[in-house]
Simulated scan of single mutants.
Amino acid sequence: MTRVLYVRFLGRSAASAEGHPALLRLLHGITPVVQALPPDAAFADVGGALRYFGRDAAGLAGLVRVRALALHGTDCVIGVAANPLLARMAADAHGAPGVAELPDAADAVAGFLADRPATALHGVGAATARTLASYGLDTVGRIAAAPPATLQRILGAARARRVRALAQGTDPTPVTPSAPARSASAEHRFGHDELDAGLRRRALLTLADELGYRLRGAGQAARALTLTVHYADRSTTTRSRTLAEPTAHTQDLTGAAYALHDALGLQRARVRAVALRAEELADAAHTTRQLSLDPTEERRHRAEAAADRARRLFGPKAATPAGHLDVA
């Protein structure tokens, strides 16, 4: 029997670089079928865990909540239902911390869905909802009751079938265990079109520091770095560089970002935003690293580790490099 939990962890720490992976490991202690939904949520298929724990799905949801509070000081709202769509909707409808279970009975599902707006269906966007509302189909119940031919004329055949199934509470999408992230990105948008190359370099330092901190917290290292520059005329330039060796160190990422930026020759460019993406991520514990006899580098890495510990204790801005945009 398929039973799905939609777990949304509450609080700022739940969405942090360390908090979310730690909370996902808590779910993995109950079932291996866990799909991460960054930055602060996850699906978990607990159908195979019911007999092992001797609890029903709502009981397992309660166990998740107790463990999250006891081990991480983080509360959560958990939806329990037969599929991911209904579990997410049950949690969203509940809102407050706690467990919300939606029974499998068809009349219970229909009653739960009937008066909800079309946008409550995950996968139905605002534009589709406006189109449906213009034909009087402004609630999930009315969409479910509409003749298939009517929906097909409004939305087209494939889209109509998908929306009708969702409106009837049917979601065949399985909970897919998440693979490790293959990239991580960060972006800074300037308050105005920026001509100052020095300020752009400070933005790149800030982004490289953020990426490095996140990668180190997740135990990952990047093999490549991509810089994207957005201009005032809405055009973009993207450049990539393979790093000398996989790294998560802020100084290495910053140096690569500066090199990519300087190679573009943006002396007169009006820059709207810059973004960095760390790519080809790998497990840092299994990557090779060139040994160095330079004691300065070793001291720098120790200082970086100490700064990371301070940030974990006192917040992400507790220890940042000089030149960081948050430093006056």
Rank of each mutant, 00 (worst) to 15 (best):
L151A: 13
Q251C: 01
A284L: 11
P148L: 12
S240N: 03
D171N: 10
A257F: 01
G191Y: 07
C76M: 07
Q152W: 02
A232L: 05
G219Q: 03
Y6K: 08
T119K: 06
T139Y: 13
H230R: 14
V64R: 04
A184R: 15
I30W: 08
A36H: 10
A70Q: 14
T296C: 00
A100W: 04
R302N: 05
G315F: 01
P174K: 02
D40Y: 13
L293P: 14
A181Y: 00
L102T: 05
Q152L: 05
A165C: 11
A285F: 06
T128G: 08
A146D: 01
Q35H: 09
A93V: 14
Q290R: 15
D308F: 05
R223N: 05
A133S: 15
L113I: 00
G169V: 03
A81E: 03
L63V: 00
A318E: 02
V271W: 09
R299W: 09
H286F: 14
G48Y: 04
T176R: 15
V109D: 06
G111E: 08
P172I: 01
G73T: 10
V163F: 11
R270V: 00
P21W: 12
A93F: 10
T287I: 12
A221W: 04
C76W: 02
T74K: 05
L27K: 02
Y258M: 09
V4L: 04
V140W: 08
A81P: 03
T31P: 11
R142N: 04
R153Y: 00
D75S: 13
D283L: 09
A197F: 00
A14Y: 02
D56T: 00
R51D: 13
G19F: 13
G123N: 03
A118M: 09
Q220S: 14
G123V: 10
L293G: 15
A244V: 10
P38W: 11
L102P: 06
A186K: 12
G123Q: 05
L137R: 09
R241E: 12
N83L: 09
D104P: 12
A273M: 08
N83Q: 11
D283G: 04
S178L: 07
R223V: 00
A158L: 11
V77E: 02
R300Y: 03
M1D: 03
A282G: 12
R311T: 05
R268Y: 13
R277Q: 14
P321W: 09
T247A: 05
Q168M: 15
R309N: 09
V4W: 06
L243V: 04
R161A: 15
R234L: 15
T131E: 08
D40N: 15
V64G: 06
P316E: 05
H301F: 07
L121N: 06
D45P: 12
R164G: 14
A149Y: 11
Y6F: 15
G141A: 09
G47W: 02
D171W: 07
L243T: 01
A87C: 08
